[in-house]
Design a protein around this nucleic acid. Structure first.
Lengths: 192, 192, 192, 192
DNA sequence: AGCTAAGCGAGACGGTACGTCCAGTCTTGCA
DNA sequence: TGCAAGACTGGACGTACCGTCTCGCTTAGCT
């Protein structure tokens, strides 16, 4: 019988157009004009198409940011805590200052408005970043640069926490010197 | 020199009704139904009255939270870093777990959507909390419990950052043991 | 050459619901409660749908009245000025007394508040009524019941003018005897 | 038994300021910006002062128009129907074209929205104008220029009706030739 | 001449409706 | 039969006025 698929197949093009449009709108006015209608219009896509694939605006933004940012902060081969952590934090600051800061703030904001998105944001974004940082710290433990009695989770919360805090509140700059101070803090906490 | 202002004076009753209604709605569904229309209806107040006195929904929420929370975390007389900081962090955790956590998350979310509100949020809320924490740390420096070479601002960012981070992401619990770990961290960083 | 229009077509059901709701509200309190919000609610229709299709409340009312009244005053075959004009004026009085009077007053009122609507009201409503009356008078000219030197436009202004004047001011009744007097006036002016 | 009235008497200045402000606003954009708030502001008067003296916006407008227009169309000594009626109608057209037309249209519009104002408008404005016209016609009857069997009320409705009709609908000009045609019409109807 | 109460301006109040924007769903015809 | 287009219901937005109220100041007229 009919095994051929009738109808028009899904358009990958449309999907990509949505993500591109979202990313552009996001970086235009800090998300002020970022609505599903605007995305649909800019992408040349029908609204139902968007609703078919994503559960919410937040998820589109998350995917758009992920698809753009996935390979921005590469994990370098471990050298030393001082070198590797410093480099990781420098890259993070750099990315934030180049525009990703606004995206991160936007995602964090959306996560507070929708619990189920908050879960996806955590699992698909935040925890993956934590894993990278943690792997650096674990290698530092192996290299005896961090005491094995140190609670690495607290260390992760401290490092990412301080960065997010400054990013979200905007009371302090996000520059290399800040990255250096956090690196130093981690080293001092590791020694014990 | 007429310094008296003509016209009917501002109704404190209406103002208080707005703040109360806001606080209730905020704690009902985590801010899902928190709209200016809903506040106006619940408070028995006209919408223009609200717009006359507050520039945005965010500012109403901020004032509502401030008016409720102003005296929740008292500043105790300084005893020791271990005691005073620990107590401050315990109180903070407690307040968050008693419902203020949702409010804080809501405010932080709003702050990411409106730059001018972000400024007010920072000045009127965040920096005041930072000042409390910092005064504890400064007393610790005076008591030689923290080295005078330590950068207190970084310490503040670390402590508040870690708390906000967990609160916003929801990947870790906010309990006394977390507060204790942060206290211990501060002490270790203070001992240069 | 695609001339077909994409997208969901206009809903005739919604359009009709709006007109019906408008007509009902119009006849409920003489237009006192006739607001776009009330129409939308009564018709079960969103406000944007109304604004998409009508430029103003006045135009909705005009269309509602037109759709209800289009066939109320039929043009009878011409017999004589005495008979045909009298019948036309009798029907007009009747329609006014049956409730259309309020609608006409409402429309005339709206026309004074919005010049562009006044134009549409004139073109789509008033001039069409004038044409009917004028065609009767023209047949009377052909039948030598009205002198060909008589200015028919003035006659039309006199007949409709007197009716509208009494309707709007309310200083005299709108009954058959009034219609008869106007008929007689027309006949006397025609003889010359 | 204090029956005397103490207290400050009414300010005639405020009353006049209201009427002047109303008249100016009325002639600025055809009544588009004519609101009680605007009047109060322009007149430098408190809103309650306005509400204390006038039952509605319409009544303010009526009084403003009356106070400005009372002596615009003087009643000349009767000469002949041809002369006196013609002059009266010419003056009416002139006044309408000089700006009073907009005021009349505005008043008529308001009269359709408020039945009790419609009564006052009729009694204090329309009927007084009718009385002037009627007195001319009555003098014509006395002078045997109009047959005593002619119904003068119908004649009044015809003359004022035709003018109001053209004014309100805007389908014909209001000039001297129109006035002349109406004069001629009256003369012909008078001859019987 | 002083007292006092009503009138005054100003403007905040609870409301209603406005016209707009966007959400999320539904209904077409094209491909 | 999946898609773009776009119309649909619905809800909140921020604004403009409404008519009422509450102030402190001003002022006329009685005591």
């Amino acid at each position: 019988m009919t095994k051929t698929k009738a109808g028009r197949p899904r358009s990958e093009k449309a999907q990509q157009a949505v993500l591109n449009a979202t990313y552009e709108l996001l970086n235009e006015n800090g998300g002020k004009k970022l609505t599903i209608e605007a995305i649909a219009q800019k992408a040349g896509v029908g609204k139902p198409t968007i609703y078919r694939w994503w559960p919410s605006l937040a998820d589109i933004v998350l995917e758009a940011v992920l698809s753009q940012a996935d390979n921005k902060i590469p994990i370098p081969p471990y050298e030393s805590l001082q070198t590797s952590l410093r480099q990781f934090l420098h890259k993070s600051m750099e990315s934030i200052n180049e525009g990703d800061g606004a995206n991160l703030r936007y995602l964090m904001s959306l996560a507070q408005q929708d619990d189920s998105f908050r879960d996806r944001f955590r699992e698909n974004f935040v925890l993956k970043r934590q894993a990278i940082l943690k792997s650096i710290l674990e290698q530092a433990v192996e290299a005896n640069e961090i005491s094995s009695t140190q609670d690495l989770d607290i260390l992760v919360d401290i490092l990412f926490g301080a960065m997010w805090y400054r990013l979200l509140i905007g009371h302090g700059i996000m520059d290399e010197s800040f990255a250096d101070k956090l690196t130093e803090t981690a080293i001092r906490l590791g020694q014990n």
